[in-house]
Amino acid sequence: MSEAPDVATAWCRLLERRPGTRGATHESLPAIVEAAHAEPCLRGLYPFPTHGTLRFLRSAPPWHGPDHDDLPFIVYGVPPYKVYSSGYADLLGEVATPEEAAALAAGHVAADAVMETGE
């Protein structure tokens, strides 16, 4: 499975649940993706579903070094939704809805994270 080449394509593939897209078959992912996409600062980051989480990366692949994955992420599945800082360092909160999870993650993204992506 190849990764999307840019931020906009990655979001599009996730929103459309395009076959072959990472996480496309997980039933609880679409609600989280839609809520995260509605948050402007998250929409400017590369969405990367992996191991039951929706991560927000600073850039599209190829990735070099650990600094591309240093932002908060959402653990999806059934409520409550958990939002953690990078590396599970801190539980930032548990919330009842995808929208609350996306807002919580967005609230912990530094303003410079989106600016670095060029979006």
Rank of each mutant, 00 (worst) to 15 (best):
L92Q: 12
G23M: 04
V95H: 06
R18M: 10
E116D: 14
A106R: 14
T21D: 05
E100D: 10
V95Y: 05
L91T: 00
Y76G: 06
G23N: 05
T97R: 08
H37R: 11
H51I: 07
S86M: 00
A106Q: 14
V109W: 02
P30T: 13
P5C: 11
S28W: 08
I32M: 03
D69Q: 06
A8P: 03
E94Y: 08
E99R: 15
A111M: 14
A35N: 02
A8G: 05
L54R: 12
P80E: 07
P5M: 06
G87S: 01
V95F: 07
P49V: 13
K82M: 11
T117V: 04
T97M: 04
P79F: 03
L92A: 08
R18C: 05
H68G: 02
Y46G: 01
A111R: 15
L92H: 09
A102T: 04
E116I: 07
P98G: 08
F56T: 02
E16I: 00
Y88I: 08
L42Q: 06
F48D: 07
E94L: 08
E34S: 13
L92V: 10
R17I: 08
M1S: 00
K82Q: 14
L42A: 08
L92N: 08
R55H: 08
R22N: 12
F56W: 10
Y84L: 12
R18K: 13
D67E: 15
G65H: 00
D69N: 14
C41V: 11
A110D: 12
I32A: 06
E100Q: 09
A105W: 10
A113N: 06
E27S: 13
D112Y: 14
H26T: 12
A36D: 01
G87F: 01
Y81L: 09
W63A: 06
E119S: 06
L71Y: 09
F48Y: 15
A96C: 13
T21H: 04
A111W: 12
E100V: 00
P98D: 13
F56C: 03
L54N: 04
E16Y: 03
R55Q: 11
P79Q: 05
G118I: 06
I32E: 04
A4Y: 02
E94W: 07
V95N: 12
G87E: 03
V95I: 08
T97S: 13
L15T: 01
L15V: 01
D6G: 00
A105M: 13
R43E: 11
V109T: 13
I32D: 05
P72C: 09
Y88L: 13
P62D: 04
G23L: 02
A111E: 15
H68F: 13
D69K: 08
A35T: 08
A10W: 02
I32R: 01
T50H: 14
K82H: 06
H26M: 08
V83P: 09
R17M: 12
G107R: 12
Y76S: 03
R18D: 05
T25W: 04
L92T: 11
E3S: 03
A106G: 14
L104M: 04
G77W: 01
L92M: 13
G44K: 14
Y84V: 09
R18T: 14
A110F: 07
L14Q: 12
F48L: 12
E3F: 02
L42N: 10
E94T: 09
E94N: 06
P72M: 11
A89D: 15
F73G: 07
P40N: 04
